[in-house]
Design a protein around this nucleic acid. Structure first.
Lengths: 162, 162
DNA sequence: TATTGTTATACTCTATAACTATA
DNA sequence: TATAGTTATAGAGTATAACAATA
């Protein structure tokens, strides 16, 4: 049946017509970034997102608070993840409803909200983060450990930190 | 005034409180990918998105059609960019309204829609793509040409093509 | 007067289900 | 019965403006 497959289309997986030539886009860094995001998200949801009911940004928030010793303000979180303040407010509201984080007004500056993990938030963040090695290992079919480390380093430079 | 800045916060740019430690997330590839996406999108909109009124996905569609000799079906485009069919339909409707692309039913299989660039679509795609070198050059403050090429190659492997 | 955070709201993006027409 | 594409629609993500409290 299959359409006919002009070239020697090797049935990539499911069905699949002839795959396109990405040609002119192959050197556009942002394009490669977008394409790489697809399998990355897929692995994330498999290992962390679905089991722990955490969206990528929620996971990032929890681990950022954890990594900074529960001494973090909303302003800092917003800047670290490039989140507009209103979105962050909603995100933190949801995490607070689930009992994962709590907010405390600063004593030295009453405008500032400190964010800290609750006991169960700390537990969840640790458990979720413990799944990272298994997730990262799944790249091994495509990238060696050295390539992965190199890639992480280059992406860090790209984002201007390093 | 400034909150106080525990460490030697070097006033990154505008204001900026003490930047957070990304600590535990530094080895999570998907996290680095998300962070790198921010400056990447910023440069894209500066050089291509805003001047040509093209969203990233629209630009990708036009250049993909161009790179494949106007011989492309919607199915192929959807798979190349991981776009659900209904979204692709809407995207192509908009590009067709702007007179950039046209659809033609296949003669051998009347279900299939071929997508081709109109004359003005071809022109726009070429003009937009001609801005890529200037855009890519802006990474030079952060990455060398070698690092960029290496990064592109690693991202391609990550996406399973290469 | 400027800043942190909140509220309200609108806009876009993405995903799913149901449908048409072809095969 | 299966596939390419469309329509309709709902849900999630993102951005902006106006406001409250504090500095």
């Amino acid at each position: 049946m299959k359409p006919k497959a002009t070239a020697g289309a090797a049935a990539t997986e499911d069905d699949a017509p002839r795959p396109l030539d990405h040609g002119a886009l192959d050197e556009v860094l942002g394009y490669q970034l977008s394409l790489a995001d697809v399998p990355s998200k897929r692995l994330y949801f498999k290992h962390i997102g679905t089991p722990f009911r955490l969206r990528p940004v929620e996971y990032s928030l929890l681990v950022l608070v954890l990594s900074n010793g529960n001494d973090v303000t909303q302003k800092q979180l917003g800047q670290a993840l490039s989140l507009p303040a209103p979105n962050l407010t909603i995100l933190l509201d949801k995490l607070a409803e689930r009992g994962l984080i709590a907010r405390e007004r600063s004593d030295v500056d009453r405008r500032v909200q400190h964010v800290r993990l609750t006991a169960s938030g700390t537990r969840l963040a640790r458990e979720a983060h413990a799944c990272v090695p298994a997730m990262e290992r799944e790249w091994s079919g495509l990238l060696s450990a050295q390539e992965k480390a190199l890639l992480a380093r280059l992406l860090r430079k790209m984002a201007g930190r390093s």
